[in-house]
């Protein structure tokens, strides 16, 4: 990034053209070379070494510690790869289940985001609304969702809608909480700036509070996204009708002692969680990174 030198040039420019005094040099941007992300070997080597260490220990346990007939407890890595992932039958089942889980998690997340943001906006409009509604957000967060699962099954059946509902309930609180926090942490000076111009509450919401809350909203989204993945897999294991997702696959494989497939499915679920976390971090940086240090 060469913004700093650009600005200097532009600043000198107006001095010459318009006869204005040169504005002071801009503050140093946060992109000094020292802060630039380290790329290459020094960054990737340490985690790579840890990974290799884990693989070595894995092989030792799998080959020398476990009895051959107990090897399903920790199958050899190449068996997980070839039997669990690449075997056409397993691969097919895995992809279908992954697709199903992605749909459930993302739909649940989308609903949680919409409800959460609206809920928080409602609470930010008046203290009495907040006092009336916030306790329910906390209660939602505190009830063990698993305790509600039988009820959800009674009411909404044992298929897709119930799985989505579990996702929504698990992912909702961070959205409500973060959005509310964001909306309420608007700078007092900014509020007064809008008030002085007689801006009404909707203008203030659209042009001030919501933009100011975006970093908090995106941080909430990233947390909720991770929870939605958990919700999708948990919901799966209770509501077993309809297309199986990763959760059903995991319980099936474990009950059939299919270690290779079980490990492949668990690894897939973990990777899905990691990808979602990374994706929503990226989304946040894209959305507000220009003006906010979104980490």
């Amino acid at each position: 990034m060469t913004t700093i030198s650009n600005e200097t040039t532009v600043g000198d420019g107006i001095d010459n053209v318009e006869g204005h005094p040169t504005p002071e040099l801009p503050a140093t941007l946060s992109t000094t070379p020292a802060k630039k992300k380290k790329r290459g070997l020094s960054r990737w080597l340490p985690p790579l070494l840890v990974f290799l260490g884990i693989v070595v220990v894995w092989y030792i346990i799998s080959l020398f510690v476990l009895d051959p007939h107990l090897r399903f407890l920790l199958p050899l890595p190449q068996d997980i790869l070839f039997k669990g992932f690449l075997d056409p039958l397993s691969f097919n089942a895995l992809m279908v289940a992954l697709y199903q889980t992605v749909i459930v998690a993302m739909l649940g997340l989308a609903i949680a985001i919409v409800i959460g943001v609206i809920w928080a906006i409602a609470m930010s409009q008046a203290k009495w609304v907040e006092r009336s509604l916030f306790p329910y957000a906390v209660i939602l967060q505190c009830i063990p969702i698993l305790a509600l699962v039988p009820l959800i099954g009674f009411w909404f059946g044992y298929e897709f809608p119930s799985r989505v509902l579990v996702c929504v309930m698990i992912a909702l609180f961070p959205m409500v909480n973060n959005t509310l926090f964001g909306l309420q942490s608007v700078d007092k000076g900014h509020r007064e700036l809008f008030k002085l111009q007689g801006a009404n509450r909707w203008t203030t919401l659209g042009k001030l509070s919501l933009p100011a809350a975006l970093p908090a909203i995106f941080a909430g989204m990233r947390i909720s996204a991770g929870l939605a993945v958990v919700g999708a897999i948990v919901g799966d294991q209770f509501f077993r009708r309809g297309t199986p997702g990763l959760g059903i696959l995991i319980s099936n494989y474990s009950s059939r002692l299919q270690g290779e497939q079980l490990f492949a499915t668990i690894i897939t679920a973990a990777l899905f969680g990691v990808v979602v976390f990374w994706l929503f971090g990226l989304l946040g940086r894209r959305a507000v990174g220009k003006w906010y240090d979104f980490t």
């Binding site: 913004t3 107006i14 204005h20 801009p26």
Partner: peptide, 15 residues
């Protein structure tokens, strides 16, 4: 006297 800085974000400006 801010001509030329129209597209700058506040964080890129000095006090």
């Amino acid at each position: 006297g801010l001509g030329g800085f129209e597209k700058h974000l506040p964080k890129a400006l000095s006090g």
